[in-house]
C-alpha cells in the first residue's frame, strides 16, 4: 500500500485550486522508518507527504485543535479514521464545508515490528464511510468481513463481575494517569475532562491503582459507542497498556444490546447512549 504520489498530487491540486489552507497527512520522522502527522501549509512542501502501511495515526485528532478549527482542511482518512470523522461531524465539532477528505481504501497498517495491526486484521470498515475523493479514484474496495468478537473479549465476557474487575485492575495497574490516551483520541475534545486530576470533581486526588482504573473505566464509558478502534490511544500510551480491551469490551456489549450499533458508521447517529429507541433493552432496570 503506497499512495504517496497520489496524495502529493491531490494536495498540490487542492492548494492550486485555492480550496484549502492546510493539508493534514503523514511525513517521515526524519530519523527512522516511521511516520508522524504532517500539517502542510506551504504548497511547496507537499513533497514531504507520504502514505504507506506505516501511516498509522488517526489524523482526525487534528480537527479538534483550535489552530485547525474554522480552517479549510484537506485530510487523509482511512476507514477507521472516517468513522471518527463521521462522529465529529455528528457532534458538531467540525464543519463539513471546511473539509476536503481524501479517502484511502485501506489494506491495513503495521506496528513497529512490521506486523499488521490486530484492529486492521479485524477491521470491517477498511473503506472510508465519508470522503470527497478516493485516492485511487475508486470508491469501492474489498468486501469487509462480518463483525466478530475476538478471543480476548470472549475471555472477558466469560468472567463474572468480580473476576472481571480484578482482571482489569491488574491489567491497568501500571497506568501513570498521564492522559496521553485521552489527548490522542479524536473523540475526546472536552474543555474540562472528567478524568483530569486537577479539575475533575470525580477523580481528583491520589494516583492509586483503584483511581487509575476508575479513571480509565470512566474514560472508556465516554467512548462507549463512540470508539472507532483506531488505537491512537494505545500508540500514545507510554506504559503500552492494552486500552483496546476496555473499548472493545464496551463495543461488543453495545453491539449486542443496542441494535448492532457500531460507532460512526452513519452520519447523524450519536450512538447508543445519546439516543432513545423503543428497542433499547431495559431488562437491567429493576
Amino acid at each position: 500500500m503506497d499512495y504517496t504520489n497520489q496524495i502529493r498530487e491531490i494536495a498540490s491540486k487542492l492548494f492550486a485550486e485555492g480550496k484549502i489552507d492546510v493539508f493534514v497527512g503523514y511525513r517521515m520522522t526524519g530519523f527512522d522508518e516511521n511516520q508522524v502527522p504532517a500539517l502542510i501549509r506551504d504548497p511547496n512542501e507537499v513533497s514531504k507527504l507520504v502514505f504507506t502501511d506505516k501511516s498509522v495515526f488517526n489524523l482526525t485528532n487534528y480537527l479538534k485543535q483550535d489552530h485547525t478549527r474554522n480552517k479549510r482542511i484537506g485530510m487523509v482518512v482511512k476507514g477507521c479514521d472516517s468513522r471518527a470523522l463521521n462522529l465529529l461531524l455528528t457532534e458538531s465539532q467540525v464543519k463539513r464545508e471546511n473539509l476536503h477528505i481524501v479517502g484511502i481504501p485501506c489494506k491495513g497498517v503495521v506496528d513497529e515490528n512490521g506486523n499488521k495491526m490486530q484492529n486492521c486484521i479485524e477491521c470491517i470498515f477498511p473503506n472510508p464511510v465519508v470522503f470527497d475523493e478516493m485516492v485511487d479514484g475508486t470508491p469501492t474496495g474489498s468486501e469487509a468481513p462480518p463483525y466478530q468478537v475476538n478471543t480476548d473479549i470472549q475471555n472477558i465476557a466469560a468472567m463474572d463481575l468480580v473476576e472481571r474487575r480484578a482482571y482489569f485492575e491488574e491489567v491497568f495497574e501500571s497506568c501513570i494517569r498521564c492522559n496521553a490516551c485521552r489527548h490522542s483520541c479524536p473523540m475526546c475534545y472536552c474543555a474540562k475532562c472528567c478524568i483530569d486530576q486537577e479539575t475533575s470533581t470525580l477523580y481528583h486526588g491520589a494516583n492509586t491503582t483503584s483511581s487509575a482504573f476508575h479513571a480509565l473505566m470512566t474514560w472508556s464509558l465516554h467512548l462507549a459507542g463512540r470508539c472507532v478502534d483506531c488505537r491512537n490511544c494505545e500508540k500514545a500510551c507510554p506504559s503500552h497498556l492494552p486500552l483496546h480491551l476496555l473499548h472493545k469490551w464496551n463495543e461488543q456489549v453495545i453491539y449486542e444490546n443496542f441494535q448492532e450499533h457500531l460507532a460512526g458508521v452513519h452520519e447523524g447517529d450519536r450512538g447508543a447512549f445519546y439516543k432513545y429507541s423503543m428497542k433499547d433493552p431495559d431488562d437491567f432496570i429493576m
Binding site: 457532534e91 458538531s92 465539532q93 474543555a191 450519536r270 445519546y274 439516543k275
Partner: peptide, 13 residues
Amino acid sequence: KEFCSGCQNCVTV
C-alpha cells in the same frame, strides 16, 4: 459555556 464543547447531545436528549 466555557466547558460546553457544543456536541449537542443534550439538545437531542
